[in-house]
Amino acid sequence: MNMLAVKGLSKSFGGVRAVERVNFSVAAGELLAMIGPNGAGKTTCFNLINGQLRPDAGEIYFEDRKIQGLPPRERCRLGLGRTFQVAATFGSMTASENVAVARLSRERKLGSLFTSFRGSSGKETRALLAQVGMESQADRPCAELAYGDLKRIEFALALAARPRLLLMDEPTAGMASAERGELMRLVADIARRENIAVLFTEHDMDVVFRHADRVIVLADGELIAQGTPAEVRADAQVRRVYLGEEAAHA
């Protein structure tokens, strides 16, 4: 089943086309990598799917339901999670409080004014933190955590919403090489185990080719190729946009 289907998605900023008639879909439990050179429209695509931007044309279906027009918070409630290029967490809270906020938000219990906030020591919170390997740091404020750990916390935050599709914008950016592989392995493991579809952008080709089931390539706002990692790697047009010349001899 298609978790996400994007049809004819277009967006321009002041006459400059950022995304032009893009079509693709993500199946349940699939890891789909979106790659492309700078300015190809990857982040714009993400913001359109996530609801931060409104498309000029085209449709976005989430589990066969049209979702354009819904604000990001509504999409989250439908099961569309997201992480950001620069890890976004709630800096004034501890790791476990971060996760608990996301969990209570899912349960629609964040409006309560007079009850006390008990989510942070809950079983589910602990389990989520354990899942991303952050259990030992549960009570440390996010403002003090290393960047790689923040990325993990953000991942746990996104998981707390029980998403069926996760959009991850450069999940390993800003991390040292060793950490990158580790985090991506974790993402892939959890996604496969819980049958979560993951759409991610990434510059680190090691990560892309090791973990993605499928790869789509954007250049100048258009989708120029899609297929298995091996197919994409062999695609002449993809080589051209990345390397800038016919690397036939390579």
């Binding site: 080709m205 892309v208 790697r233 080589r239 990345y242 390397l243 001899h249 390579a250």
Partner: peptide, 11 residues
């Protein structure tokens, strides 16, 4: 040394 290209620049 085309392997350099393959490794660092190509997909």
């Amino acid at each position: 040394n085309p392997s350099l290209l393959q490794r660092y620049l190509s997909v």
